[in-house]
């Protein structure tokens, strides 16, 4: 058994195995890209292949170092060792990340506290300041596909009833607290609002409209869909109904306005923005940076010495 393991390790430490592994990895990556399948690059066998290549790299580096250091032109070869060691550090960082990183993806609504199970603080999105691009600056480009010009979220973090941090964060400018990073989403933003529905018997019911939940409700026997639209100063709730299977806008309500239809009254209230948020803790980031720097430093060292010697 021990003999077999040793034989397998010796084979893995050989370039005759490492290079075919590299070729196989390239081929399966091409297949995964040309014929996309869910989780191809996260599947156990793909990660296993990467791991096998990493193990092969580790063994080659360990076994060949003493020989390399005795060889002529070793200055250049030290660069090769540093580069390979850098790749190993990157793999170690990825393993550390898989084992210890934590991440929470959720949505926060302006003026509300958001409690996420497992997250060590409560997040309050105090305000979300949005400035959109002027369409005349972008001729021929569909503005719906562009991010906002400014998208600053003012956040407060609470713990045991006390404010522990306050900061502004935006896509590209994440906020940081202790070892956690808070990043607002670049595209998952929009409006939430409440519709107060008063029926024929003057009974009141509040409908909370959230884009990520079912936005349809019954209005006098008709299925109606609501969504928020417009800029901050002209925000409206559009009401749509299905005509021949196609949604058709039949009314737009401003904040505080009331619509009467089929003996029902609808009043718009509580119009606010929401933003998708990611909070993450990645203890492996320093190791990733060290691995990347080692890789690059080794390459430069190798190139310099190879052509100088």
């Amino acid at each position: 058994m021990a003999k077999r393991v040793w034989g397998a390790l010796k084979a893995l430490a050989s370039l005759k195995v490492a290079i075919p592994l590299l070729v196989v990895l390239t081929v399966v990556t091409i297949i995964g890209s040309l014929f996309p399948q869910p989780d191809w690059f996260r599947s156990g066998w793909y990660l296993g292949l990467l791991g096998l290549l990493g193990l092969s790299l580790l063994l080659i580096t360990i076994i060949h170092i003493p020989r390399i250091l005795r060889r002529k032109g070793r200055n250049a070869l030290i660069g090769v060792i540093v580069t390979h060691a850098g790749i190993l550090v990157l793999i170690a960082a990825a393993i550390q990340g898989g084992a210890s990183a934590s991440r929470w993806d959720f949505r926060a609504i302006e003026g509300e506290m958001t409690v996420v199970p497992g997250m060590p603080f409560v997040i309050e999105l105090e305000r979300l300041l949005i400035e959109e691009y002027d369409p005349s600056e972008f001729p021929g480009i569909e503005l719906a596909g562009l991010p906002n010009k400014r998208q600053d979220g003012q956040f407060r973090l609470h713990r045991t009833g006390e404010v522990i941090a306050e900061f502004t964060a935006a896509p590209g400018r994440p906020g940081r607290f202790e070892r956690y990073t808070l990043l607002p989403s670049i595209s998952d933003i929009g409006w939430v609002f409440d519709l107060v529905l008063i029926d024929r018997q003057q009974r009141e019911r509040t409908l909370t409209i959230r884009p990520w939940a079912d936005p349809t409700f019954d209005l006098g026997g008709e299925q109606v869909l609501a969504h928020g639209t417009g800029l901050a100063d002209e925000r409206k709730a559009q009401l749509l109904r299905l005509v021949d299977g196609e949604p058709e806008v039949f009314a737009a309500l401003g904040v505080g306005e009331t619509l009467e239809r089929a003996g029902y009254q609808l009043r718009l209230e509580g119009f606010r923005r929401y933003s998708g948020l990611s909070v993450y803790d990645r203890p492996h980031m320093p190791l990733l940076m060290v691995g990347s720097l080692m890789m690059l430093a080794g390459l430069v060292w190798h190139f310099y010495h190879r052509y100088r010697d």
Binding site: Y133, E137, F138, P139, G140, I141, L146, P147, N148, K149, R150, P171, G172, I186
Partner: peptide, 11 residues
């Protein structure tokens, strides 16, 4: 390709 000059997006 479309050659119009575009202002720099903030990101």
């Amino acid at each position: 390709m479309p050659k119009a000059v575009q202002p720099m997006l903030i990101i």
